[in-house]
């Protein structure tokens, strides 16, 4: 979707300001938002593309006005309701910051369900390879060195083609092999395995003659995003 998350090439956000000796998290709630997102992901009811897609549903003005882990919270809340873990009424209470009526102290944990992530499983969970790369013997549609055009598509659902390369000419630089296709994977419509390439776009082909002549941007793109350049 053409959302506020697709930021590449926009002007006006000001300089990049790095924070010296930045902590990993900036507040206690960020720690918990991070932990909740990974722990609920461990139920495997949704995939990473669905998570990204859920965060992208945040209204554009809100997306730009909020911080990173607020995007994560928005996406998690949405997925929890969509997948029936939380009712809309419960979510409304959460969003008002109201504690669960029957809630006991957090140290009461004897009711943890089978399937919930346990602390002893965390190292294994973090080391496991998720299945974005797949072994399906799909032939590549394009060869390294071949000129390609990024198709000028504007799907309303999730996609990983940034707007700034749509309709632009590039050259296939690396063939990374076969991966799940995020557009269908995010929609729960199958994996549609296909090749992913790093495609090199000359900076001048993206940004015009004022861009430095030698510079370039490499973007990772799937077969279905590309067509052969004439």
């Amino acid at each position: 979707m053409n959302g506020a998350h697709d930021l590449g090439g926009m002007h006006g956000f000001g300089p990049v300001v790095a924070e010296p000796d930045e902590p990993v998290f900036h507040a206690a709630w960020e720690r918990r938002a991070f932990g909740l997102t990974l722990a609920m992901g461990a139920w495997r009811r949704w995939n990473l593309d669905m998570s990204r897609s859920a965060r992208e549903q945040m209204p554009p003005a809100e997306y730009l006005a909020t911080s990173y882990y607020e995007h994560w919270m928005f996406g998690l809340e949405r997925l929890l309701v969509e997948h029936g873990f939380v009712s809309p009424e419960e979510l409304a209470r959460v969003r008002r910051g109201e504690p669960t009526p029957s809630s006991g102290p957090p140290e009461v944990r004897d009711g943890v369900q089978d399937g919930a992530l346990r602390p002893e499983s965390v190292p294994r969970m973090l080391r496991n390879r998720r299945a974005a790369r797949v072994d399906d013997p799909v032939p590549p549609k394009f060869q390294v060195g071949q000129a390609v055009l990024t198709r000028n598509l504007h799907p309303q659902g999730h996609t990983r083609v940034p707007r700034y390369v749509r309709g632009r000419r590039g050259v296939v630089a690396i063939d990374h092999g076969v991966f799940l296709f995020p557009d269908s994977h995010a929609a729960g419509e199958g994996t549609q395995p296909q090749h992913v390439y790093s495609v090199r776009f000359a900076a001048q082909d993206l940004w015009g003659p004022d861009a430095p002549a030698r510079d370039s941007v490499y973007v990772d793109l799937w077969d279905d995003y590309l067509e052969a350049a004439p």
């Binding site: 990974l38 919270m73 809340e77 873990f85 939380v86 959460v94 957090p106």
Partner: peptide, 23 residues
């Protein structure tokens, strides 16, 4: 965030100790 963690803990969907380990 606190309300969400308490709700999911109450439902037995998350173990707060697993969150601690992730963090």
């Amino acid at each position: 965030v606190r309300a969400l963690e308490s709700l999911l803990t109450e439902k037995g969907l998350v173990d707060p100790a697993a969150l601690d380990a992730l963090i």
